[in-house]
Design a protein around this nucleic acid. Structure first.
Lengths: 161, 161
DNA sequence: GTTAGCGTACTCGGATACCGGTTGTCCGAGTGGCAAAGG
DNA sequence: CCTTTGCCACTCGGACAACCGGTATCCGAGTACGCTAAC
């Protein structure tokens, strides 16, 4: 089981957008260059964030991406859902109703699958943790442990403007 | 993000093995036929469970797989780790040290990545839930909500012995 | 009748193909800015 | 000097290809059972 790699890129890029100011649109190519990522592919991820309402895209010169709302209202869960999709990792295919077990017949009103319930509960805990972590939490944590980082980001993007 | 489908098969097969008695070895082909699964592929998953010490394999006629320990000591986490692997879904590639950010140099003693920490915490919650759920929990739950199931399993495997 | 030996059928186990999805790339549509020309 | 108009460069956006890991299959090694034949 492996999460889409674009999730990591998306989160870091959102953090950078936050440090650069919410009113400033940054092209995907610049965001990619900062981490030496493939620009076209990062662009694809940013599009997904835009579709999810996390970013706003501005076409044309002076265009790019900007945050659609304050980072205090963006959670890790939002980013994961946008990039990696909403569906659960464990997907119950109801094999208990196949073959010898249920005679190949699905009952009219089946009881929920106990196995699936266990996995669902675990995944709910996972989602809850991710939903409890906003990007604002992360920026404050970073600014505490690594105070120079935001300025370094701003300087780099200003120099390569 | 998608979990290996074999996890579902493995859990249900372990439950069946439990209902059939821990001393009885069942061939992969029979276990597969019960759910109409591809036998050779289920065999592969059962091999993984054997390597992980969850099952014991017996070669030759009258051989097959049996539980290596009581189901009260087998958790969903054990099965997932055996089939799907131990590594985390989110893998931090430390992009913060690439390109413009850190000047392409990884510091001597880097602070832990705050983004990765958030994901790690969530995944720990997920693992904790899975580790708290034993197969014994599941069997009792099933025997409560669907009392006829164990007998149906035993009967089917006895008839097709 | 007993026992030793052999053959057979059945099992797991790992090596080998196949396929869908993530990863990666490309070109087209649209837009804003700049420059040049005209008033 | 100001306004208008046309062009161009830059951006996103979605369609297209490539690679990789999960999915599926197959054949070989080993073992217990049963049959046969000799004692």
């Amino acid at each position: 089981m492996r999460m889409n790699e674009g999730v990591e890129w998306a989160v870091h890029s959102c953090l950078n957008l936050a440090w650069l100011g919410e009113d400033r649109a940054v092209p995907a190519a610049r965001l990619a260059a900062f981490y030496e990522l493939p620009a076209a592919y990062l662009n694809k991820q940013l599009q997904a964030l835009t579709r999810a309402g996390i970013l706003t895209s501005v076409p044309g010169p002076k265009g790019g991406f900007r945050l659609a709302r304050p980072i205090a209202k963006i959670t890790l869960m939002d980013v994961v859902a946008a990039i990696d999709g909403e569906e659960e990792a464990f997907r119950c295919t109801e094999i208990r109703f196949r073959g010898g077990s249920g005679g190949g017949r699905t009952p009219a009103n089946p009881k929920p699958c106990t196995v699936a319930s266990g996995f669902r509960k675990a995944e709910m805990a996972w989602r809850r943790e991710l939903a409890a972590r906003t990007l604002a939490d992360i920026t404050s944590e970073v600014e505490r442990t690594n105070p120079g980082a935001p300025d370094r980001v701003r300087r780099w993007f200003d120099d390569n403007r």
